[in-house]
């Protein structure tokens, strides 16, 4: 796969001057995905969300490629429609270029609102890559909880006070849901691993069929941390096994990054104001539950990798 020097010689498809926050992880993800895809013509569909709003404030656009926005809930459907039209044009000889299709959606536009259109597009086996930049809440509209918000995290609709201690439910594991669609490529990664993300994007774009990548994106506004630490926090999520980096190719699990030593989850929680209340002694039970969920998921993932290796699925 392409190294940094090679990637830097490709055209930059996302210009500066967009209005994402300073230190925004979504900007990093969009740039890295586009630099991995820039060797071929690429069409982008974007769900409503931070990335869409901030990169295309009228009359400006930061995108230097074909880009399409329609609504919050149907980015995957829009992209699948464009892909179907492209296939028809290619079949009748009106287009001869080899074009790739990418959809960007936040966790709100992917886990919740755009979920059924994503599921439909994957089931119809369109050749498209769906990238979810997952910042674990509706950051664009004021940090409301989504189904990606983790247990115990503060959000404006899961507040912290005398009675409530942040979100009371565990998050949905969308990556596993996408694996259950039996699509040829599903990946999970985080900001802070540029090589892993660009490699996964290149693999996904080479796959003839629907593909999905879930990228954990630290949000300096909603998570509450120093903006310079965006990539540091992404790596910490992986080192604590809060957000394992793995891929599922044709049903076969592979963990791409195995931390040398699994750090305790408090290392990750203490850097973010959304988890600040969990460090108080009376909330130790919630931290223990988060740690237990992480341990169980990590053990499950290692078991799945082992099974895949043994069975040679």
């Amino acid at each position: 796969m392409a190294n940094l020097k090679e990637l830097s010689k490709r055209p930059e498809l996302l210009s500066g001057g967009h209005r994402l926050c300073a230190g925004c992880g979504a900007g990093i993800i969009a740039r890295q995905v586009m630099m991995a895809a820039a060797d071929k013509p690429v069409v982008v569909a974007n769900a409503t969300g931070c990335l869409e709003v901030s990169t295309t404030i009228y009359p400006f656009s930061a995108w230097k490629t074909s880009w399409f926005h329609s609504a919050f809930e149907n980015a995957a459907a829009s992209c699948s429609g464009m892909e179907a039209a492209y296939k028809a044009l290619k079949r009748t000889g009106k287009v001869d270029k080899d074009i790739r299709f990418i959809t960007f959606g936040g966790d709100g536009g992917t886990y919740d609102i755009g979920f059924q259109s994503l599921s439909g597009a994957m089931e119809r086996r369109h050749r498209m890559l769906y990238v979810c930049y997952n910042n674990e809440a509706y950051m664009n509209t004021g940090i409301q909880r989504s189904s990606a918000t983790p247990l115990g995290a503060y959000a404006s609709t899961s507040p912290v006070g005398k009675v409530k201690k942040g979100k009371e439910q565990i998050k949905k594991d969308l990556t596993k849901v996408m694996v259950a669609h039996n699509i040829p490529y599903v990946g999970q990664t985080a900001v802070g691993y540029w090589n892993d993300l660009t490699t996964k994007v290149q693999k996904a774009l080479e796959t003839d069929g629907p593909t999905f990548i879930n990228v954990l994106q630290p949000c300096r506004l909603g998570w509450g941390y120093n903006p310079a630490d965006t990539a540091v926090l992404g790596r910490l999520a992986v080192e604590t096994c809060f957000w394992p980096i793995y891929e599922v190719v044709d049903g076969k699990y592979k963990i791409n990054v195995k931390p040398k030593e699994k750090k305790p989850i408090t290392e990750y929680l203490k850097l973010q104001t959304r988890f600040k209340h969990l460090l108080r002694p009376e909330n130790a039970g919630i931290v223990a539950e988060i740690q237990k969920n992480i341990d169980e998921n990590w053990a499950w993932l290692q078991m799945m990798e082992e099974c895949s290796n043994k069975a040679g699925v």
Binding site: G16, T56, I57, F60, S61, A62
Partner: peptide, 18 residues
């Protein structure tokens, strides 16, 4: 639909946020 010029955001200077 509305058409926006590709890459025109470069004309908007965000350097003064710094």
């Amino acid at each position: 639909c509305d058409y926006l010029e590709a890459g025109s955001a470069a004309a908007f200077e965000t350097g003064d946020w710094r």
